[in-house]
Amino acid sequence: MTAVLDALAHALRDLFRPRVLWVVVWPMLLAGFIWIVLAVAFWSTFSGWIALGLDKLGVQAWLTGLEPSWIANAIQAVLHLLLFVPLVYVTALVITALFGMPPLIRLVAEQRFPALERKRGGSLVGSLGSAVVAVLLFIGLWVVTLPLWFLGAGVIVPFIAAAYLNQRLFRYDAVAEHASAAEMRALFREERGGWWSLGLLTGLVQFVPLLNLLGPVFAALAFIHYGLAQLAQRRKDSAAA
């Protein structure tokens, strides 16, 4: 757990460096732009899906008969917003993982691990595959656990989903440039508890208003620090053996 907290502390320190601030901004702006365009282009389709879901839950009929009508419209607008914000955030996470990681990795490697050899065990295909699997399983987790909301246990679902998404999305890219393929497999297998702990703690940030704007880059930095530190320690132990 010390290694996880150390990674979080280093990530927080690096978060406000001038080289990092732009990476904080542009994925969130791009994700917001993408979903605004999609919302405008497919508004009726999205609204229809939401109405269908509410109808399945028995809520749509209640909204239809609600008076005055502006209350029903306001509730529906809030529901749209509650759907829109997570979509923007998850999209920003994916954009950061795929395109924002290289400058962050260079920053961390130059300042903290300048002597760490780059063995380039990862690939663009591997990175894309990891991102696709992460997002699909994240969505699947939400869908499968929907019944838990009616049992009162649904409150834990967002935290589990955020922990899974972060650790699956960022761990691959965090070490792909420096670790060999064998080292990556070993790190993912033997440090599973650390990856999940880091995923949960960085995932909590997305539920804090305003701070969640920093969430994707904070998570990326934390995983880079953790992954490279574990890789450096592994090589040190191997050389000493």
Rank of each mutant, 00 (worst) to 15 (best):
A109S: 15
F113W: 08
A3W: 05
G122T: 10
K119S: 14
V59E: 02
R235E: 10
R168E: 05
A51F: 02
F170T: 04
W49N: 10
V90N: 04
G227C: 03
L38M: 14
A77H: 00
P216K: 13
I95C: 11
L57W: 11
L201A: 12
A239H: 02
L136F: 14
L165G: 05
Y164D: 06
M28R: 12
A153T: 04
D173C: 06
F150I: 04
V78P: 05
R118Y: 04
L204E: 03
A232H: 09
A161H: 03
G122D: 13
D237M: 10
A240I: 03
S127N: 15
Q230W: 00
A222R: 01
W26L: 09
R120Y: 11
L107V: 07
G126D: 08
F150L: 15
L124H: 08
L38G: 07
V90P: 06
L5T: 00
V90G: 08
L116T: 02
A97M: 03
A41Y: 01
P209R: 03
P114C: 07
V205P: 00
Y164P: 05
L54W: 09
L93R: 03
V94W: 07
K119N: 13
H225A: 12
P18Q: 05
R192S: 13
V4K: 02
F46A: 13
M101H: 08
I36W: 14
G227I: 01
G152R: 09
W70V: 08
W195L: 13
L221E: 03
L198P: 05
